[in-house]
Amino acid sequence: MSKIIELKNVNKWFDKFQALKDVSLEVNQQEKIVICGPSGSGKSTLIRCINRLEEHQEGEIIVDGKEISDNTKDIEQIRAEVGMVFQQFNLFPHLSILDNCTLAPIWVKKLPKKQAEEIAMRNLEKVQIADQAKKFPGQLSGGQQQRSALARALCMEPKIMLFDEPTSALDPEMIKEVLDSMVDLAKAGMTMIVVTHEMGFAKEVADNMIFMDEGRIVEKAKTKDFFDNPQSDRTKLFLSQIL
């Protein structure tokens, strides 16, 4: 298996506050990584640096062989290959679900409209909301919106998917339907980095677990080892509180 994401000694500051401290990480193709940690630990910042929604100041981030730098063209290319699902869904409220899904393929990947719609419907079927395609985001439930957002990201046929607390803004009932879609995606072999507090999901799909605190990666381990035999005291404390 080959490396698809590589972070080398990444440092990131928000003004004086250091959000990421010397973070290094390698992700292989088809690997599923779940990042957990207390709030403010830098886990969201870390994945947002991977598609440069945040800029890092020091270190190197290499995604699919391209280094992330100030070069706008490269960044746009990387973003087209890296899908992202947000906590707040961030669907485009002025467009129908179908248009949400076809917009980027048509305008960024320059696909013909018909082909883009075929891809969109296929992905909407995968997340089981094909029947809602003509509706607007405001007409759907939170869970349906988040699954649409997942479908929208998949329509770009990304090589990597980033999830930034995808279930944190959802009612408990709707969390499962979103997680189910994510499990399906994992089984289909997608490379995934997921920031979440859903430990059940982590145990089911993650190859590796990462625990972050105060901008550092405190622990990285195989999922089974991470839960059965955590090494650091901080991890033990965190796990004892959320499990």
Partner: peptide
């Protein structure tokens, strides 16, 4: 407009004008 709209558009690979 919420910041999320900008981020979603960017994350799909859209440039400034698109």
């Amino acid at each position: 407009l919420p910041k999320g709209q900008y981020e979603a558009a960017k994350s799909l690979g859209m440039g400034y004008w698109r």
